[in-house]
Nucleic acid binder design. Sequence first.
RNA 1: GCGGCUGUAGCUCAGUGGUAGAGCACUCGGUUGUGGUCCGAGUUGUCGUGGGUUCGAUCCCCAUCAGCCGCCCCA
Length: 463
Amino acid sequence: MSKEKKIYKPKSVSGFPEWLPEVRRVEQQWFDHIRRVFESYGFCSIETPSIEELDVLRAKGEVDKEIYVLERLHKEEDDDSDARLALHFDQTVPLARYVAQHFNDLIFPFKRYQMQRVWRGERPQAGRFREFYQCDIDVINVDALPLHFDAEMPAIIWEVLNDLPGMEGENIQLRVSNRKILIGMCECLGITNIVEVTRIIDKLEKIGEQDAYADLLELGLNDEQLALIIEISSIKSSPSEISGLLRDFIARNDVIARSGSDEAIQTFNGGVAELETVMDQLKHLPEDAVIADLSIVRGLDYYTGTVYETVFTDDPGYGSICSGGRYDDLAGSYINKALPGVGISIGFSRLFDRLRQKGAFDVTRKSAADILMVLPNEEQRAAAAETARTLRERGYNVELYHAAQKIKKQMSYAERKGIPYVWFPPFEAGQDHEVKCMETGGQTKADPQNWEPRKEERDAAVA
RNA sequence: GCGGCUGUAGCUCAGUGGUAGAGCACUCGGUUGUGGUCCGAGUUGUCGUGGGUUCGAUCCCCAUCAGCCGCCCCA
């Protein structure tokens, strides 16, 4: 080593977030909360490897996804044995593989949740990462999956999001639609470039009706097609009113009955019926919490019916923080059985980072400790450690200060780490224990066997 | 992948063609067993990287990399 030591400037890679302990603590609380709600509906947990074979990830046509592939640094020039490995970009495709592979050992309907990191090689931006967490729930069944689950998904998500720490001041809205409606409509109208149409409709809110109109015109749609597509896509409604709006639309536009194939009409009518049923089962949720929004179609091509998106009502441009839908045949590439499913995914990192940047989190506590045990001097070390053990057995998190330094220094340490209580064991034999509440500054005598934080102090310390 | 902006201490940022500063943070101190405030002292930089112009560049030019924002796409 030379005298001038080389220092790499430490920095994290953009798009790969990491948090300080006080933020990580909130993140852990979020995971705990989400897990609790998911499990309360009977979902089990699984975890799949970060890596899948590239062919598995590509089996469902997601080729344009930016996928990170895995490669050894030491590999030989012509060695491509690792080239088939890649980091998964979502949890739905691995789930399909998992279900197909363990088909005989699973009980259907298979209800699982999964909270893992996923990777996408996109350009990082606000709310967009290259490594991030998703929290998914999915239900997969054999042959047919009851529509009831399509309604259960948003209900669960609403419960999760509503109670997350820091979400108190946020207005979010789950938007539900059914792809069969727009697709059936396009087919009825004889529109062939359906993918392009759905892509434009998906951006309807963002680009506005004017631009959507122009873009559709450019695709070669005629006036009648245009008008109908825009009209139906513009339908937004509460759960209780959607049925009436759809019926009214159908009654006024008999074009659907007149043109198109029977199959197209069936698709359209099926979508309408499904959406009505799903929305009907969501009427118990608060006003505006969940709406039907026919402009939601979603880009992912494997969705076949119900689709979901979730936005901040006051900032829909931030992007969806929770999306999903129904897929009839995701596992079909891996097994010769019909395994329809419906699922939804919380964009954990996107949601979390927004609230973090808004300062919505309590970031005062930089450790899990409830109590800092003062070490008065080396002679009292054993007694202090014993007191700490007693309190730990009673369920408190206790950190014993590491050195018999000035009390001022030990206090300052507790203050900076946001530890709510400082415990003073006897400085000399025969004296009393004392506890100080850092929030109020109050200090009282205490017995480690039966001390409890006073309620108001506990609230203050927790808040 | 395409377009725009930015790159100076751990952080937020000043600054000048003649080899750099502030605030915050951090460390220590303001004596005996008590934090937050205040006061004092101190530590910290290949001025993103490589090349060019120049007697001389952190400042000008070119390239490159990285970051931010928008597009595409999406959680």
